[in-house]
Amino acid sequence: MRGRVLVRGGAVVAAMATVGLGGYFAAVGLDEADKLASVIGVFVALAGLAVAVYGLVAERHGGEGEPSPRSSTPGDRSIAIAGDHTGIASTGDRTTNRQSR
């Protein structure tokens, strides 16, 4: 849920920035807008480079989301499942499984 809020918030900020810059560029003229766009482009490129370096460093230090190589289960009839999975799993005696559609 938090990820969706961040994505939507980022999209709103990007849209507002695009509209604002478009209006500003139209008001100041094409020559001045070109100069300012070049400066903004440099800062966006530097920010992208910083994010890329951060991602590489985080990946080297074992970032989040890596599956654990082994799962431990607390009891005799416990089940540990990793990755994508579908189906039914039963651990009890004389268990009846029904799959509804």
Rank of each mutant, 00 (worst) to 15 (best):
1 M>K: 14
1 M>V: 14
1 M>P: 15
2 R>F: 07
2 R>D: 10
3 G>L: 12
4 R>W: 08
4 R>V: 09
4 R>P: 02
4 R>K: 11
4 R>A: 11
6 L>W: 09
7 V>K: 11
7 V>A: 13
8 R>Y: 13
9 G>D: 10
9 G>S: 11
9 G>I: 00
10 G>T: 02
11 A>P: 00
12 V>I: 15
12 V>M: 04
13 V>P: 05
14 A>S: 00
14 A>R: 12
15 A>N: 10
15 A>Q: 13
15 A>E: 12
17 A>P: 00
17 A>M: 13
17 A>E: 11
17 A>W: 04
18 T>M: 14
19 V>C: 10
21 L>A: 05
22 G>F: 09
22 G>I: 07
22 G>C: 06
23 G>H: 00
23 G>C: 08
25 F>N: 07
25 F>Q: 07
25 F>I: 01
26 A>T: 09
26 A>D: 12
27 A>P: 07
28 V>Y: 05
28 V>P: 01
29 G>F: 08
29 G>E: 06
31 D>H: 09
31 D>C: 03
31 D>S: 07
31 D>I: 11
31 D>Y: 08
33 A>P: 02
35 K>R: 11
35 K>M: 04
35 K>H: 06
36 L>C: 00
37 A>C: 05
38 S>C: 02
38 S>K: 11
39 V>I: 12
40 I>V: 15
40 I>S: 04
42 V>Q: 14
44 V>H: 04
44 V>Y: 04
44 V>N: 01
45 A>M: 11
45 A>C: 06
46 L>K: 11
47 A>E: 10
49 L>P: 02
50 A>Y: 13
51 V>P: 01
51 V>I: 15
52 A>V: 15
54 Y>H: 15
54 Y>F: 14
55 G>M: 02
55 G>L: 05
56 L>R: 13
57 V>N: 04
57 V>Y: 08
58 A>Q: 04
59 E>Q: 08
61 H>K: 10
61 H>I: 00
62 G>M: 03
62 G>E: 03
62 G>T: 05
65 G>C: 03
66 E>T: 03
66 E>P: 01
66 E>R: 15
66 E>A: 05
68 S>C: 04
68 S>A: 14
69 P>F: 01
69 P>E: 14
70 R>N: 05
71 S>L: 15
71 S>Q: 11
71 S>M: 12
72 S>W: 02
73 T>S: 06
74 P>R: 05
74 P>D: 01
77 R>T: 12
78 S>A: 06
79 I>H: 03
80 A>K: 07
81 I>G: 07
81 I>V: 15
81 I>D: 08
82 A>C: 06
83 G>K: 07
83 G>T: 03
83 G>F: 07
83 G>D: 04
83 G>Q: 03
84 D>Y: 12
85 H>V: 14
85 H>A: 15
86 T>E: 10
86 T>I: 08
89 A>E: 05
90 S>Q: 05
90 S>P: 01
90 S>L: 03
90 S>W: 01
91 T>S: 10
92 G>E: 02
93 D>K: 14
95 T>Q: 00
96 T>A: 08
98 R>C: 08
98 R>H: 14
100 S>I: 12
100 S>L: 13
101 R>W: 09
101 R>V: 09
